[in-house]
Amino acid sequence: MIRLVTETFDPGAELNAFSAGRTVTGAVASFLGLARGDPSQPAALELEAYPGFTESQIAALIETAIDRFGLQDARVIHRIGPIPPGDPIVLVLTASPHRREAFEACDFLMDYLKSRAPFWKKEHGADGERWVEPTKRDLSDIQRWDAPSS
């Protein structure tokens, strides 16, 4: 499940709701991304999405993760619009019978969200605004999940 939100959200409440009533799960892993920025600026960054397209691309990514890691469930909550420093941007939740798959799927989902999900990020700094594109690090991180070429 994917949810795009324009207001702040409560990661603890989301984690509790996702974990509730799971008697055969064993492991829930979570990743929370926060807006890093200059506290004197009203918004650290601004995220633009393409409504409809962004959700369908992320839903397909979640299905891929569920199949690849044998997850029982996964959820992504992603903030869009202007985001103040310190606010949550993204929460990834994964559920599986054992911890390894939950951890790995969380890592996989974040690497894909950073460089393949349809978001466009503008950073607001003291010296103005600039569009941010995936870094070399983001692109090498995602290559870790490519099938080995042996």
Binding site: G33, L47, Y50, G52, F53, S56, H78, I89, V90, M110, L113, K114, S115, R116, A117, P118, F119, W120, K121, W131, V132, E133, P134, D138
Partner: peptide, 28 residues
């Protein structure tokens, strides 16, 4: 993207088609 589906090559457009141009993406 044409009608919210990534286009491959020189896609055909129909009347009312929604075309979007998407620069490199960066989330999280």
């Amino acid at each position: 993207a044409v009608d919210k589906v990534l286009a491959r090559g020189d896609a055909a457009l129909h009347p009312g088609a929604e075309v979007a141009f998407l620069p490199p993406m960066s989330g999280g």
